[in-house]
Nucleic acid binder design. Structure first.
Lengths: 262, 262
DNA sequence: TTACGAGTGACACCCCGTGCCATAACCTGG
DNA sequence: CCAGGTTATGGCACGGGGTGTCACTCGTAA
């Protein structure tokens, strides 16, 4: 992969807006190809630009940094996730909205499994790429945390003063579930229905602490009904301290079942 | 803050191993001071080294990068956290062990509140520092995830095939709780008992989904007893799908209470 | 005293990222 | 048809982070 002297360039020196995406795409694929073949550190931006047939300066007009060339879609995905959050119907549980948001991220990876798998191989062995990806998913986390901070008060206002903590924990839990499913899928070579696996992980999240959000800190024995939303199979979560009497617990659960199932 | 020509340096050119920590400390404080006064990107490594009375090359012998000079203790804290995990007694719940691990991180911040607060101000407005700190806490997250992966099987082996997911979610939840408490403390100016606040957050974590780990996926109606461990106030979590009959749910809860409270 | 290693200073080098300006295309309105 | 602005680019220079290398100076052990 030698330097191209770049004399008498075949491509015209100015391009229209429509062609700009093509240049960006060429740069991304050239970067991905060079990173895979000769390593990340060993590849210079000059080589990437030369392989794409543009100048070095043009590269930095399309990507803020060398690392960003390998994750070209995170910015777009971020605004799409934000759009998902903004356009959520008021009736939807905030946790479900966030789950739909992170699904958007997973779809980005699932859209081109081969590239994602190869990129995963690179991120594992190059610390710079690893940190860059961590910072990228942290941006989604921040989005979700802020969203839940503004929407948990309505759904679980009676939970007390621990709403912001639960919002942060819930957001990170959803992100962690996504990371787990994604990495398992990538390690398996990008085969199988990731989105289904993610939905299964969401079930676990919801069962573990998701819909139990309204329960809050149970002392000594409480149980909360769950909004039905015409979705069969929703779960009822009851939390009780073990120092509560069994009959106390049963009464609380019974009461929750009554108000939630009519 | 001019360049020091560095002729006739007052400090001897070679130092013993004991003095090496002093040089590192001088570099860290000089970096922190310069970053605070004239900004992070406006400060060059040359200036930091000159302020500490050493050569530029020496700076990079103590810190891998410019950002690391502002977080000098993360590496040491990481091995201390690992030591906490390694020396945990077999009887302790893995989640509690991880909580003690992240407490070690919080103590590092709490050790010098003024520095932490000022550093927090910098990390908020400098993206490079922000990403570096995110990557740092991600390393703790990885530690915890791997630890829980190897210790959840024993405690909740009956939960099925979702152990790795729960391990990852639990680790990120603990880290998220730490981040939340830490940031709130930093925003408040570093006043108050952070460690107590963190322990309170741990209670919420444990009540929310910590000890409910053994419940697993309940279909259509199950409830699991929780290991008591001589800790009063532990919670029992019951999960049931709403398509289960109320009596079915009550029977399951009752059974769990019997086996868990004797 | 001599030999060795650890820590350092000094210099050179690569290359990422940015500011700046000239240029070539593509729309506009006149 | 043409003068104007806009957009994307190429080329150049520069600052600065991070690394390799060599010589030097200590302290220490033999």
């Amino acid at each position: 992969m030698q330097y191209v002297p770049h004399m008498s360039q075949p491509r015209s020196t100015a391009r229209t807006t429509a062609q700009r995406h093509r240049v960006r795409q060429d740069l991304a694929t050239a970067a991905m190809h060079l990173f895979s073949t000769k390593g990340y550190e060993a590849t210079t931006v000059d080589e990437i630009a030369a392989a794409a047939g543009v100048a070095r300066r043009t590269f930095f007009r399309h990507f803020r940094s060398k690392e960003e060339a390998i994750f070209p879609d995170h910015d777009d995905t971020l605004v799409r996730v934000q759009a998902v959050l903004d356009s959520a119907e008021p009736g939807e549980h905030p946790l479900d909205t966030v789950c739909r948001g992170i699904t958007e991220v997973l779809r980005m990876y699932a859209e081109s499994p081969e590239v994602s798998v190869e990129r995963y191989r690179l991120t594992r062995e190059v610390p710079a790429l690893r940190e860059h990806e961590i910072a990228s998913v942290a941006r989604y986390d921040r989005l979700f945390t802020r969203y839940l901070l503004g929407h948990f008060d309505e759904a679980a206002h009676r939970a007390g003063d621990d709403d912001p903590l639960l919002a942060e924990v819930a957001a990170s839990a959803v992100v962690a579930a996504h990371n787990h499913v994604l990495r398992r899928w990538l390690r398996a070579g990008g085969k199988g229905d990731v989105e289904a696996q993610l939905n299964h992980a969401f079930d676990v999240i919801r069962e573990t602490f998701g819909t139990g959000m309204g329960v809050g800190r149970a002392t000594p024995a409480t149980a909360a009904p769950v909004p039905q939303e015409d979705r069969p199979g929703a779960v009822v979560v009851a939390v009780a301290r073990t120092d509560a009497s069994p009959t106390e617990v049963l009464r609380a659960v019974e009461k929750a079942l009554e108000s939630g199932l009519d």
